[in-house]
Design a protein around this nucleic acid. Sequence first.
DNA 1: GCATTAACCACAG
DNA 2: CTGTGGTTAATGC
Length: 226
Amino acid sequence: MKNISCANCLLKSKAVKNLNNNELDLLGESCVEAFFNKGETIFKQNALSSNIIYLQKGLVKLMIDGPQRTQILRLKKAPCYLGVPTTMGDKVNHYSAVALEPSVACFIDIAVFKNFLRENPDFSYEIILELCRNELEQFRNCIHLVQTQTYGRLADKLLYLANEIYNCDEFDLPLNRNELADLICTSRETVSRMLSDLANENIIDINGKHLKIIDKQRLENISLRG
DNA sequence: GCATTAACCACAG
DNA sequence: CTGTGGTTAATGC
């Protein structure tokens, strides 16, 4: 197996940019790069985890099988780390990661990763920064999910996709109706109906998975009011 | 009561 | 995999 040259990687994370050449060699020796097709599982809930994953390219959903149903926790867009909390925090994964589009991920040995955390403060700082931003986003997401009605939750996610994932008001949905429902805690029928309703109101234009936001202002109002 | 919201079921493309 | 209609339960005037 050939070692990966992390030093020459053009897709280095902000954290890895703080590693010295020696550390980059160590990372390269312990790191494996893997490609995932749409729908392939990168890591699985309840399975033993001994790697930190750096998502180089692609889009991923994090999901948990809950007591009642499957819940999509959130989407994650490259570049980002996956599984830091679940690999550092416990032996087994508390959630799964599944690719939503062709993706490239680096699997990093947990021991090597931990060593960088201890030895290199600039590396650690960037990791903590990413974790903190994630937590803030989770809290925001949580309160919105709990305190708004279904139209609000749907509107919020459509805006999220446009603003945070695609940086564009016209895009193809990376999720089907069922997954959309799992993301906003509702049924697939309700998602179907609400997308049709939003289209009838000329707030969005929807054709299969192709979505265009027409009246962003109104969509934002719906997201806020719930 | 009456209206609204949204889940569940069934069925058809 | 989606969209729609019917039904039903919960909640709030």
